[in-house]
Structures are given as C-alpha cells and as structure tokens.
Design a protein around this nucleic acid. Structure first.
Length: 471
RNA sequence: GGCGCGAUAGCAAAAUGGUUAUGCACCGGCCUGCAAAGCCGUAUACCCCGGUUCGAUUCCGGGUCGCGCCUCCA
C-alpha cells in the first residue's frame, strides 16, 4: 500500500484514489520568463518519478503540469527585451522542454497555458463574487475575501490572526482586509488584457491553477504537487478559490518537494536557491559540466521532501555512484526481464517506493543488486537492476556510451566530444599497448596507458580484451 | 514576533526501541606484469541535558544550532 506524506494532514497517509485504478495529479509548473534552474529541475524530476511509480503500480495517471505564461515578471521581461510576450514565453517553453527531456522527464499528459484559460478564470471569479467570497474594488481589481472562507489557513497551518501579526503584510487601500488576495487585476495602459465584467484586465496568479485543475481533472482530484514555497500562499489560495466555488473538497493529497540549497559565500551557511536571492544555477549551466542523468541521480538520491544542497562536489560524488551502476551493466550484460515484484530485491524496492517515495532507499537496493550481479555475473540480476532503475528513469542509456562520456547530445550541453582523442585514436593506442604487452615491453605499455590517462581515458583490461572509459 | 522542519560516521544520505543501510572517500587483502574494474575484509556515527525502558541514535520533555514559510519564488 502506497503511503504519501500529505502536507494537509502533516503525516503519511494511505493513498486511496477517488476512482479505483485512476490517479489525477496536478503540479504547479513554471513561469516562463527565464531558463529553468535546478529548483525547477527538482520539481520536474520528483513528480516525473511520482508519475512513473504510479504508472508502474498499475494506475492510469493523468498528469497535468501548467505553464504560467502571463504575469508581472513576464510583462516586465518582454518590455526589457523589446519582444512580444508570445515570443518570450515560447522561447522559454521550448528551452524548458529541452532541459526536461535531457533530465529524462516524461512529458506530462497535459501542459495547459494560463492564457488559454482566461475565460474560465473570469467565470470562476464571477462565481466567487456571486457567492460572496470575492468583491470588486473601485480600482477595477477583484479580490478574494479570505475571512469569508472558513478553512483559510488549513494547508499552511496558519491562522488569520497569525498572518495579521506577521510583519510583512502590506497595506492596500483597495482591500477590505490586508490578507485578501487579487483574483483579477485591472489593466494598466499598454498591458495585455482581456475583457471581463469588471473591465479590461488580467488574472491574478492563483486563479489559473484552480481553473486549469478543474478543467482537466474536475472539481475534486487526487494529488496536487509543487515546491514547498508554493504551500503558502499559492496553494492555500487555490483551496480557498476552488472549495468556495465548487462547495466540495478540492484535493485529497498535497505534496511539496524540498528546496535545493546553495552555500552562501558571505556566511558559509546554506540557503534556498531562488530567483529572488539571485543564487541560482540554471539547468543549462549545470549540464555544461555534468551529464543530465547525473543531475537526475543527484536529485533522486535525496528524499523529495528533504533539503538538497547543491555543490560540484556533490555532483562529482553522484557521478561516481552512477558510474558504479553503469559499470555493472557493462560488465554483466543485462537480460531483458519482466519485474517480479515478489522477488527479494524488487520487493525491497517496492517497499521503499511505497513509503512516501523513498528513493534513497530504493537506490540503495539497486546498489545491493549491482553487488550481487557483479558477484554472480548473472544477466538475470543485471536485467533486474536495469528494469528497476528504469522505473525511476535511471540507467536507461547505453552503459558504454555513458562510461565513455559519449552521450553529449542527449545528456548534456557540453560541446560534443570533449576528449582530445577520438575513439579511433584511443583504439589505435590500445592496440599499440597490446602489442607492447605481448612483447613484454611493459615500460612502453605503461607509457601509453599514462598518455591516455592524461587525456582523461582510463583503461580496463578484461578477459575479453581492453576497454576504456572516461575519467 | 507567529508557524513549521531538521541535526546520523571524512562527505552525502536512509532505516531502526536491542541485530551490516547504501554511495563516495580511506585502509588491508584477492585478482592483475603493474594498474583499472570487480570481489572479500577492517575502521569511522547517531547535537547537548534530562525522562520513559531491561535496553534509545530511534519514544517524551527541555536546550543549542541550522533551515523554511509568514512578500514574487519550484
């Protein structure tokens, strides 16, 4: 039985879908005005892993991940760049899809864009106004009245009094309550706008997810995910909007992934990677130096709710670990096997995944399996390793290709082959060394091996001949 | 100020009321012409103080430190 840590209940709960055998899942995606950073990579990889596991468990999954293609920052950036909002957002949507593909992220079933659902948003806002949960202010904005919704604060564990006591609530004369949030923003001159009963304007941020979720998954669905920073206010506001509009529970299980953190140069302490702190690394930055699967492995080796510290040292470490797994697949060619969930390793893997997606534990099972496969030289066990890893989107590449660093096109943004030596050059040197070895000219053989090592090539002599890999 | 999360060996990271996590790094051995890879083995932990218990890293209380949310953020 799958258990999921539900942010709403603050505990792990048995996962029971609304419709047997079917899972409807919505994840808050990106606001597309810049390249995705590692934090975005974590959301994409984590929920990709979740959807893969649900499917492997036999569920029919509808996975929706939205794209926010209209908001203040997008408008500002387009203006700065002197380009249209449409070209700006399309450019970064394309970039996001490229990054995601390299990370082994399967496309969600649906990727709705906010601008395609403005009509639905106007409709939901009208419903909220007519039910008394929202009001139009005299400046043309429409606000949600938080105190009209009894459950406000249930997701984030905050009470209205606590929030009012907070130091950072800004005063807005148009709001009846400082905590009220905007559903509809009156258009300023030269801003993109849509018609509405309240005049020309554009939607607030929170309403888009309520509407797109409803449109694709219904008024009540199973799982809603996103980064921890969205728990409040974004997800809290979504609940307020949707439950007030529909009069029923919005989402059963709320999942929030932890942050990527980086060391702050000033004080040496870890802090959240974020756009506002300006301390982020884009996925592209990282892929110039590391294969995407290393990044995926790095993300999955931590439990999704834990903070994850980013550093090159940690990625180097992840690369070594992944190399061990691929080395096993190289040394023990895997047989094509179907997973038998009652087999010992598969059963342990499954138990780990069912415990709130405990990927560190699941990966530990893969290493135990690799050890056993190395020991027994069993293609069957190597096949199990490959099959289980594939469920979390790992070890899906050619082992030799990975080990030789020849997956540049599909795995990284590095400029093709970084080796000074071509595979043909390497092969020639390997043959020269072999000849030297046969004449017991070990000094020459070792010289050649050293020359290769200086070019980042490590040799491995096996009973089947000499193979090489990238250092 | 309010609310919440965390502290595990050199690094990273899980589980667990008593029995090897796992990976990287390290040390010894096997294998190898020597290496590499692989295998075998050793070593290194559970923030501090109390409590519960036959027994706590694991449960409870307090403390210290770190992190996050309360404002746009994955």
């Amino acid at each position: 039985m799958l258990k999921i840590y539900n942010s709403l209940a603050r505990e792990k709960q048995d996962f029971i879908p609304i419709i047997a055998g079917k899972v409807n899942m919505y994840v808050c995606g990106m606001t597309v005005y810049d390249y995705c950073h590692l934090g975005h990579a974590r959301v994409m990889v984590v929920f990709d892993m979740v959807s893969r596991w649900l499917r492997a468990s036999g569920y029919e999954v509808t996975y929706v991940r939205n794209i926010t293609d209209i908001d203040d920052k997008i408008i500002k950036r387009a203006l700065e760049n002197q380009e249209t909002i449409g070209t700006l957002t399309q450019r970064f949507i394309d970039a996001m899809n490229e990054d995601a593909a390299k990370l082994g992220v399967i496309r969600p079933n649906l990727e709705p864009r906010a601008t395609e659902f403005v009509e639905g948003m106007v409709h939901m806002i009208s419903t909220l106004v007519s039910k008394g949960f929202a009001y139009a202010a005299d400046n043309g904005d429409v606000y949600y009245s938080v105190k009209s919704f009894d459950g406000y604060g249930k997701l984030s564990g905050k009470s209205l009094e606590d929030l009012r006591a907070g130091e950072r609530v800004d005063i807005d004369l148009h709001k009846r309550d400082p905590l009220d949030f905007v559903l509809w923003k009156a258009a300023k001159p030269d801003e993109p706008s849509w018609d509405s009963p309240w005049g020309k304007g554009r939607p607030g941020w929170h309403i888009e997810c309520s509407v797109m979720g409803e449109h694709h998954l219904g008024n009540h669905f199973d799982i809603h995910g996103g980064g921890q920073d969205l728990q409040f206010p974004h997800h809290e506001n979504e609940i307020a909007q949707s439950e007030a509009a529909h009069g029923c529970t919005y989402v059963n299980y709320w999942m929030h992934n932890g942050f990527i953190r980086v060391i702050n140069e000033k004080d040496g302490q870890d802090e959240k990677m974020s756009k506002s702190l300006g301390n982020f690394f884009t996925i592209r930055d990282v892929l110039r130096k590391y294969e995407a699967e290393v990044v995926r492995f790095f993300i999955l080796r931590a439990q999704y709710r834990s903070p994850l510290n980013y550093s090159e040292h940690h990625l180097d470490d992840a690369k070594q670990a992944l190399t061990r797994l691929y080395t096993t697949l190289k040394n023990v060619p895997p047989a094509a096997v179907a997973i038998d969930w009652s087999a010992p390793y598969a059963a342990r893997f499954k138990a780990a995944m069912e415990d709130d997606f405990n990927t560190p534990e699941a990966l530990a099972v893969l290493f135990d399996l690799a050890n056993e496969a190395n020991k027994t030289k069993s293609p069957e066990l190597a096949g199990q390793l490959k099959a289980l890893a594939a469920i979390v989107g790992l070890l899906e590449h050619d082992a030799t290709g990975f080990l030789q660093g020849r997956l540049a096109d599909e795995m990284s943004d590095a400029n093709a082959d970084t080796h000074a030596l071509s595979p043909a050059d390497i092969e020639t040197l390997i043959q020269a060394r072999l000849t030297a070895k046969q004449t017991k000219n070990y000094a020459e053989a070792d010289r050649i091996r050293k020359e290769l090592l200086e070019n980042g090539i490590i040799l491995e002599d096996t009973p089947q001949g000499t193979t090489w890999r990238s250092a």
